[in-house]
Nucleic acid binder design. Sequence first.
DNA 1: ATAGGGTTAG
Length: 650
Amino acid sequence: MALPKSTTFLTHLKTLTNPHCLHRHHTPPPLITLRFLSFATPEEAAAERRRRKRRLRIEPPLSSFHRSQQQSSPPKPNQNPNAPKLPETVAALSGKRLNLHNQILTLVRQNDLEEAALYTRHSVYSNCRPSIFTINAVLTAQLRQSKYSDLLSLHRFITQASIAPNVITYNLLIQTYCDCQRPDNALEQYKLLMDEAPFNPSPATYRILIKGLVDNGKFEKALELKEEMFVKGFNADPVVYSYLMSGFVRNGDSDRVIGLFEELREKLGGGEVVSDGVVYGSLMRGYFIKGMEKEAMEWYNVAVGKNEGLNSGVKMSAIAYNLVLDAFCKNGKFNEALRLFDRMMNEHKPPRRLTVNLGSFNVMVDGYCGESRFEEAIEVFRKMGEYRCNPDALSFNNLIDQLCKNGMLGEAEKLYGEMGEKGVNPDEYTYGVLLDTCFNENRIDDGATYFRKMIDLGLRPNLVVYNRVVDELVKVGKVDEAKSFFDTMVKKLKMDDASYKFMMKALSDVGKLDEMLKIVDEMLDDDGVELSEELQEFVRGELRKEGREEDLAKLMEEKERQKAEAKAKEAEEVEKAKKGATRTAISSLKYFGNKGAEGETPDNTDAVEAEPQVGEEENVEEATAVESNLKEDGVETEARNDGANEQVTA
DNA sequence: ATAGGGTTAG
């Protein structure tokens, strides 16, 4: 007996995933977007984004001399005798401390961040303190891998230990909060820097903070910060303007986009043009939004020149070009895009001048797909090798996704095969798209095979993907196979009531009530899982059909009895062990006496020995980083203030 | 030696 088609699990799930559906009848049922099919957690998605960013950064910067143009901030006079300590200078990195630094850097390079952080903490109370440079290096690595809670925890630790932070430490922390979508905390850190630190923010502080504010929709605040930059004596930064402009483009606020460009031009000396090409893509989009094509094209000619080698001195990096390219693709000017792309490839003269990068190809792939020219999209995708650009998983996924959505699963699978050949690892997203499409095209077994492959590779399918697979298998009557996936995933996923219920119903429908009860049994055994009233009611209902309604109560009673028994036994053990325990406690107290680290919780033996943790215990998993960040953060700010106080009184 | 120079597709 299969589930009636109209009430498949997926439809049910779609209703569940939209909170509005429960109340508002006019809301159309939402679709599960592919985003949900990819990463196990949002943090993993963030980590991947960061890794990719890092990879892209390996390409050499276009003009390294640009860097030297940045003014270094003037030192703040240090009037207050109680003012916080100045951070150490590089001179501190010598001898033993340099040695320590290099050891920790080695750990970071080996990607053993846990060990690196541990070693850093451990050294804080040793006779060889880590310098702020060492700490920053660890924090940087943690940020790159989105280990936010680890980062905040280490930061809190060094603050408590009165190690003076420098601008980079602040910037890292601000970046962290921005990445965690906590712009208010980022602003708090900025304020702290302004009020407490014996140095000024750097131009990078503003870049990081303003980008974070824009990305989090805090436009007004971002504009305020831009103004503060001038107050601090910094020049107008085209990068900051480009962040603001693309934010307003996203928001459809074309007047602001154009206004910002004019302002930048003014600030840079009122010349004809802004010589940094990064702002022109957004400027053009601003005009496109207003339907002012002519103006958009005029600025295009200014930035890029009507003919090759004939522009007004605007420096166009690959990224600046890509923004223009994308502006064309998204505004019905694909032919212009093609022409520009051609030109970019001609100008590309590595290693001196790089005008094409991976992003260029990605933009063009999207451009072709937007025109439904899929064959050519594949063609241009393949072409990137000639320009020493290597597609990453996201590039592959993007194209695979577009092909799948347009009935070209076969082509998509070919590309999937190429990933393997090129040593690009397919990820959760790749498999999510492929199996989803297989199911849509009724290739149920192939879909299930992709799922299995995913597990075999150690990838972590999320609940949405799991639900989809199980749903499809049950639909075609493969309940046992579905159950086997349930068994593997029940340990790995936090299943919700709906997922439990679905599997139970499927088993009940094929008359496997005992297997259904076995699931209940295991749920009762698992302290992390709660058997809700509703689920109990459901189980009773299913049992009732076979006249076995009492079985659930019996099972639950039996479990209660077992638990009580176990408890009694435990109490007995405790009683027995009491005398011995007193002895142990005394000996460990001795141990603590020598350490005497501040802020310790003396009942946490392991932590003190290996890792002198401050404040409450934290066994925060990366998977719950966002939630624990909330927790972390409360303590974080608190600890930071404590630290400041300590510094003042020191 | 430690932040940052920007984009796109999820």
